[in-house]
Structures are given as C-alpha cells and as structure tokens.
Computed example of a mutant assay.
Amino acid sequence: MPAVVETDVAIIGAGPVGLFAVFECGMLRMKTVVVDALGEIGGQCSALYPEKPIFDIPAHPEIAGADLIAALHKQCAPFNPMLMLGRRVDGLRQDGEKLVLTTSEGDVITCRAVILAAGAGAFGPNRPPLERLPEFEATGGVRYLVSKREEFRGKRVVIAGGGDSAVDWALSLKQVAAHVTVVHRRDKFRCAPESAAQLKQAAERGEIELAIPYQLHGLEGEGGVLTGVSLATLKGEVKTVPADHLLAFFGLSMELGPIAEWGLGLDRSHITVEPATCATNIPGVHAIGDIATYPGKLKLILQGFSEAAMAAHAIHPRIFPGEALHFEYSTSKGLPVPG
C-alpha cells in the first residue's frame, strides 16, 4: 500500500554514499528517508561485487563490498532511517518551502531537502553482440557479475574485458576455478598497474590463460548449457575455448531515468553541483557520489563520503532556520540523543 511520509531529508540511493549521508544527517539531528529501486541496500556494491575486495577505503586495507555495506548500515542504524526499497522515485515538485517526491509505488514523500546519491542512476550491463546470448543468459552460462565466488569452484571460466572488474575477478577466481581464460583485444589493460602486473605474473605461472588479441565471436552448447566460447582475431582467426561460464565485463550502460526530467543541470548524464555544498540548480536538492560532477571530481567512494558531509552541513539551515551550527568533532560530542 502506498505510503505518505514526511521527513527532513529524503535520500535517493541506498549505496555506500547514500548510507553515509544518513549518518551525516543524523549527526546533525535531521531525520531521513532512503529510497532505492533495488530490493536491498548497497547499490552496486551489493548488486555487482558483494565479494569483490575494495582497497581504497580508509582504515581498511581490504574490504568486500558486502562487508562495507554491512558496516555502513550498522553505523547509521542509531538514527533509524526509514528504508523504502524496491521503488523508483519518479517525480519531484516544489510545494512552498518543501519538496514533494512521488515513487513508482504511489508513495508521497514530503521533505525540506533531497540528497541524490543514486550512483550512476539506473544501470545495466553492456551485453556483447552474440547470437544465442539470451539462451545462455537464462541459465547462468553467461553472466555480468559475480555474487558468490564459490559458484565457480571447479568450473572453466572465460572472462572478457580489460578493465578492473575483469582483471580483479580473474585474479580472484583463479583460486577456485578449474581454468580461467581472459579475453582481450590488446595486451594493455585498463586497470590498476599493480593488478595488471599480477595478471601477467599469474599468466607466466600458468595460473591464468591470456587470449590476446582476441574478442568474443560466438557461444557453443546445447539446452542452455554452455560448453565453449568461440574467439576471433581481427584477422579472422577463430578458436574455441572450453567453458562452463562466460563473464562479460564491458561496463555498465547508465541512465538517469525520470531524474533527467526534473530540470536539473546535466552534463553528459551527470548532475552539476557546487563543489563546496553539492547543491544543484534546484534549491534544496543536492547531489553526491558518482551522479554528481564538478571540476576536479574523482569517482571514489571516499570522495562521496566527503560530499555527504558537505551536503548535510549545507542542508542544516533549511531544516533548522536561524539555528547556528557549531561544528564539533564526533569524538567530542558523540552521537546525538534521539528526541
């Protein structure tokens, strides 16, 4: 049944940056509602790489995506955010000094400020143009993400792509898979230099097979059961690699969806904001994380965390007009007492 909700701040997106925005707003005594189209919190961390290690989170030399989300959820739990999952925010309108959001489920959310933390908006994998692709997608022979590494234990895996996801998963799955083949059209990979060096070393030790310069050509198998992946060079040379699974990592196709119709300042499917406050061109609406852009922007989770703090502090005067905000470190003031 559709809900009618009134709150201080509505946060669109339950990924890591959105969850940290709950904490930052809570520290300033602002109530929050979090809306996400996915059925669980975590955004891409949960949907695309729950077991993939992340190496650039401060104080965590290595942490899996799912573990990061669990820690962020625990951190913001004292502020009791209302989670509205499995629904998309469709509409935004102004009602005097307030903002009104409507969702795909018919919910109406009235708030004084909105924080857009929707990552890259709605996302889906870029699919390779192969015949019979839907047949093998339906059975899991072709996949675009890894939810559980154990599913590939003892399997023959072909990984296509040259970015971080392809290389990182090749290095991870070689520990459990029977055989891992990495397919790339050239010998230079678009990933962290250390990861590329580890991939080369693993190939030299015979732990990973590199199919270079090749690209995907076809899929083989019957009844939805994948048995091989056909590869081809630009010269037309073709070979088949035995495979139980093809993991295609060609990036994501991103769409802002209904957000693009709200009148926000856009720059190539990103929302332009003021760097110091993350404010958009619509009063009371701020954007943080991957969806936001400004000169010098870095698409890092840690920069999104910083933007969450800046946006929360910029929003405070809208929620508590006339009340001076004296900044204090959390070590000094602790957590606010619920009231």
Rank of each mutant, 00 (worst) to 15 (best):
L300W: 08
P242I: 09
K98P: 00
S306F: 05
A308T: 03
D168K: 01
L210R: 07
T32V: 10
V89Q: 02
V238I: 15
M310K: 15
G161Y: 02
G96E: 06
G13A: 04
V142N: 00
I319V: 14
A118H: 10
P16W: 03
A287S: 02
G334W: 06
N281G: 03
K52I: 02
E150K: 13
P213I: 11
G42R: 00
H73L: 15
V33G: 09
A178E: 14
Y214T: 06
V167K: 02
A292V: 01
L68A: 06
S172Y: 05
L252S: 03
H286K: 04
P16E: 09
V182Y: 01
K155I: 04
V182R: 02
G15M: 09
A232E: 15
I69S: 07
R149T: 11
K200G: 11
I115Y: 00
T272Q: 05
V142M: 01
L302R: 15
A203V: 07
L219T: 01
K299R: 15
L145A: 11
A292Q: 01
S332G: 13
L83I: 09
L216I: 07
W262C: 04
E237M: 09
A120S: 10
E131M: 10
S147M: 12
D187E: 14
M30I: 13
L130E: 03
L231D: 03
E328Q: 15
G43T: 08
P125T: 06
L210T: 13
A122Y: 12
I11V: 11
V241E: 11
D164F: 11
